[in-house]
C-alpha cells in the first residue's frame, strides 16, 4: 500500500493537493482564527477570479500555446462589465460575445499561419488594454447588481468561493478529461500528427480551445468586479503571470497536452493563499509575489526530483 502511494506518478499527481494542504495547515497553525467561515472567506476571497483565469490559460496551454494577454483581457471584461453590461445589458453581452469570437479568431490565425502564440497574445495584450481604456478611461463604473449578488452569496458551511471553485474544477474536468471530444482536444496537444491522421481537424481543436479560454477569461473578469464592485483597466495585469504559475503548480505541463483542471484550480488557490500566508507570518506584504514565486520554484523542484527518480527506475 505504502509502496503504491510512493510511486513517482502518484506523488506527481498528489503534489498540487499536497502543497495546498501544507499551506492551509501552516496558516491554521499560525492563526487558528482563520479556521472559520469568515476567515476562509477572507483568505480565499480572490481565489475565484484567479481560478477562472488559470483555467483560461490552461485551455491555451493544452494545445501547446501560451497566452500573455489574459491579464489585460480580464481587465477589458471587467471594464465592459462595470459599464455597458450595467447600463445597456444587451450591448454589454454582445461585446463580451465579440471578445470570445476574437479569441477564437486568434486561435485560427495562430494555427493557419503557424505563428508563435507568445508574440500574438503579447500584441493582443496591448489591444485589450487599449480597448479597456476606451471603455473605461478612469477607474470606476458600476457593477450590475446580479453579479454582485452572486459573488456575495451567503452559502452554508463554507464560503461561496470554495463551492464555486470546486464546481468550476469539476465541470471543466468533465468537459476536458471525461468527455469524448475533450480527449481529442487533449490529444491535439499530445500528438497533433496522430490526431490529424485519425481524421480530426486541428484547426477546430485550436479554435475551440481559444474560444474556451475567452469564455473563462470572461468569467474571471466578471467574478472579479463582483468582488471589487468597481473596475479598472489595469485591474488584472498580474493575472497573466499568475495564471501560468497556477497551471504549472496544478500539475500541468508546458507542452504535450498534459493538464489537470482540478489541479489548476488548486494551483490558483495555492497562489492566493501564499499571499495571505505571509501576513500571518508577519512578513511584510512586499514578499507576496516572492512567496508565490518561491512556492512555484519549490513545487517545480519537487517535481524535478520525482521525475528523476522515475527516470532511474
Amino acid at each position: 500500500m505504502i509502496a503504491t502511494l510512493l510511486t513517482p506518478r502518484f506523488l506527481r499527481n498528489a503534489l498540487p493537493a499536497l502543497s495546498l494542504t501544507v499551506l492551509l495547515l501552516a496558516i491554521f497553525y499560525l492563526q487558528p482564527r482563520a479556521m472559520s467561515y469568515f476567515g476562509l472567506n477572507l483568505l480565499l476571497n480572490l481565489a475565484l477570479p484567479i481560478a477562472f483565469a488559470t483555467i483560461a490559460q490552461m485551455c491555451i496551454i493544452t494545445v501547446n500555446d501560451l497566452d500573455l494577454g489574459v491579464g489585460a483581457y480580464v481587465g477589458l471584461v471587467a471594464a465592459i462589465g462595470a459599464t455597458w453590461l450595467n447600463e445597456t445589458p444587451l450591448l454589454g453581452a454582445a461585446a463580451l460575445l465579440g471578445c470570445i469570437a476574437v479569441y477564437a479568431a486568434l486561435g485560427a490565425l495562430i494555427h493557419l499561419r503557424n505563428l508563435p502564440s507568445i508574440v500574438v497574445t503579447l500584441g493582443m495584450s496591448f489591444v485589450w488594454l487599449g480597448l479597456a481604456l476606451l471603455v473605461l478611461p478612469t477607474p470606476g463604473g458600476k457593477v450590475p447588481d446580479w453579479i454582485r449578488a452572486i459573488m456575495t452569496l451567503k452559502t452554508p458551511f463554507l464560503p461561496f468561493t470554495i463551492y464555486a471553485a470546486i464546481g468550476v474544477g469539476v465541470i471543466v474536468h468533465f468537459g476536458l478529461m471525461r468527455s469524448s471530444y475533450g480527449v481529442v482536444l487533449r490529444g491535439a496537444g499530445g500528438n497533433p500528427r496522430s490526431v490529424s491522421r485519425a481524421g480530426w481537424s486541428l484547426l477546430r481543436t485550436k479554435v475551440t480551445m481559444f474560444a474556451l479560454a475567452g469564455f473563462f477569461g470572461m468569467l474571471s473578469g466578471l467574478s472579479l468586479i463582483g468582488l471589487t464592485t468597481s473596475a479598472d483597466a489595469n485591474i488584472a495585469l498580474r493575472y497573466t503571470l499568475l495564471s501560468i504559475a497556477g497551471v504549472i503548480l496544478g500539475g500541468g505541463e508546458f507542452v504535450g497536452g498534459r493538464i489537470s483542471p482540478i489541479g489548476a484550480v488548486i494551483g490558483a488557490m495555492t497562489l492566493t493563499l501564499a499571499a495571505s500566508f505571509l501576513s500571518f507570518l508577519r512578513l511584510p506584504p512586499d514578499w507576496q509575489i516572492g512567496a508565490q514565486g518561491g512556492i512555484l520554484i519549490l513545487v517545480l523542484a519537487f517535481r524535478a526530483v520525482i521525475n528523476r527518480a522515475e527516470a532511474r527506475r
Binding site: V183, G187, G190, N191, R193, R197, G199, R258
Partner: peptide, 26 residues
C-alpha cells in the same frame, strides 16, 4: 509511435474511432 502519450489507452482508442462518443463512451 502514433499514439498520444498524454492520453490513456482507452482514450487513444477513442481518437481513432469517431463512433466512440455519447453516454458511456469510456
Amino acid at each position: 509511435l502514433s499514439l498520444c502519450p498524454n492520453l490513456t489507452v482507452a482514450e487513444n482508442a477513442r481518437v481513432m474511432h469517431r463512433a466512440l462518443t455519447g453516454f458511456g463512451w469510456r
